[in-house]
Design a binder for these strands. Structure first.
Lengths: 272, 272
DNA sequence: ACCTCTGTGTGGTCTGACCATAGAGAGGAC
DNA sequence: GTCCTCTCTATGGTCAGACCACACAGAGGT
């Protein structure tokens, strides 16, 4: 970590100030227009966009350009399309931030843009706070969800995949109990981004995985007890230890693989 | 917080278990195939995808479907396309998680899927940790970036927009000094998602904004001093107070405005 | 050795067509 | 009147084929 801002010492503007210059692709212009309306508040959740053909003719671009723009927004969980006629059809402004965030982080973790240890540290930061808040705010329904996950993990003969999904459900339940949707969604996304590496690690453990599972079960029970009894600080501490020890216990690959070649910030030579 | 899981008391399966069933659109199948290769590690940063025409014929879909898939991945900062020939042309696996994360959060904050207070709380969680780490890990370059931002903010006659951008730069510099790219990127994204509301608030303050700015300058200097002298805990505490008091001082709209579902009473007035 | 021009492969864009779906509304049966 | 059924229509989904703009590679000239 460092070697950043090596050749750009222009005062008064940090390294992030260099706008990526031009934006000419037509679908991006369409995206910009739609984004602008969202940012300005003109378009709100539930509103319908004009039909693709209408939009295309109004914006003076092809329908393909409009569709590509919609795909882009769709990938960000901002709109959703449905065929047919009637109120729920067409392309309308939606809100699926959790799914979008999850897809995004999963891919970037897989690409090792985000090393596994960074993910673990981020989880600790967020989940410590979530646990503290959960200890104060948890509604009965939240506690039920946690308990349900715990009980599921105790089922005899549970396989690695189910166990991990329930483990995730437990952590998600804590995040949702915090009352902060953003933090909950980020937690979900981070946890999910580790799913594949975790499963690989669990399988790599072979029969020993039951031992690890037992440790996790004990951790979870202790965390649950702290939250249920309103001991925020204790819960935070336990979550912290739990996440770190779990990471240590699992032979997770991920971060390996020599992440070389970090994009040399090519400066564009205009012409000669 | 509550009223969740109101009608879903089906035991043995939590509320998130109902998968959205089908996935038939062809561009999504293309995305799935590419994603699969990324998750499996077959495709890595810097690798080139086959040309759009090749991919289309191999996958037995139209070129339009391939392009829409690429747009989707591009929106997630996973690939990047360039025309021309030569090594850097074509569509290749890239890594721009920060930009993608920023766009995503900005839109969802604007849509009020994430209330402003949630964003503030999340920032506090992350930046507390970042400040602590920065106090221990900050490289000279990081400290330079912070100082540069601080000095810029002291420039006489600086306008609200520039001031805010430098303010952002300061916080970003702290996040990057933490050594955790993921946390840094999330911090950048969160800060940026508040840009527009903050600017509106600063303008709404009128001439009084200078007073607020002075307070922010003082906060920043104190934070910088703590980080430079390695006092992690102090830095964390100062950052916490700084963010919360700034939020209190700014009449930020955002979360207000009676967000909720505006009723589908959309009276469709057909023409004629 | 250097410059210039052309070839070729890449994404970018557009046109226009057809398909699949699902609600709306007309029309008939009771 | 009430209900069912059929057709109409608007919507996104998909495709084929064409052409453009760009940028490097390499041939060919100087």
């Amino acid at each position: 970590m460092s070697e950043r801002a090596s050749s750009e010492n222009v005062p008064g503007s940090d390294q992030g100030s260099w706008q990526p210059i031009a934006r000419s692709r037509s679908h991006e212009l369409v995206v910009d227009q739609i984004e602008e309306q969202i940012l300005a508040g003109t378009l709100r959740v539930g509103d319908r966009l004009p039909g693709e053909r209408d939009l295309a003719s109004h914006l003076q671009v092809s329908r393909a350009a409009v569709r590509e723009a919609i795909r882009s927004l769709e990938a960000q969980g901002v709109v959703r399309s449905a065929v047919g006629s009637g109120k729920d059809s067409g392309t309308l402004v939606s809100a699926m931030p959790s799914e979008a965030l999850t897809r995004l982080l999963r891919l970037h973790v897989a690409l090792a843009n985000f090393p596994m240890d960074d993910v673990v540290d981020a989880r600790v930061m967020l989940e410590r706070s979530s646990a503290t808040l959960a200890a104060h705010n948890a509604a009965p329904a939240n506690l039920d969800a946690m308990r349900e996950a715990l009980n599921g993990m105790d089922s005899p003969g549970v396989d690695q995949e189910t166990f991990n999904d329930l483990d995730t459900a437990f952590h998600v339940a804590i995040a949702e109990a915090s009352g902060n949707r953003l933090v909950a969604d980020m937690t979900i996304a981070l946890r999910d981004s580790m799913r594949r590496p975790i499963l690989q690690a669990l399988h790599a453990l072979g029969p020993d995985w039951e031992g690890v599972a037992d440790q996790l079960r004990a951790d979870h029970r202790a965390i649950y007890a702290a939250i249920e009894s309103g001991q925020g600080e204790t819960a935070a501490e336990l979550v912290d230890q739990h996440i770190r020890s779990a990471r240590a216990a699992l032979p997770i690959a991920g971060t390996a693989g020599a992440v070389h070649s970090p994009t040399p910030t090519h400066s564009r030579r205009p012409r000669s």
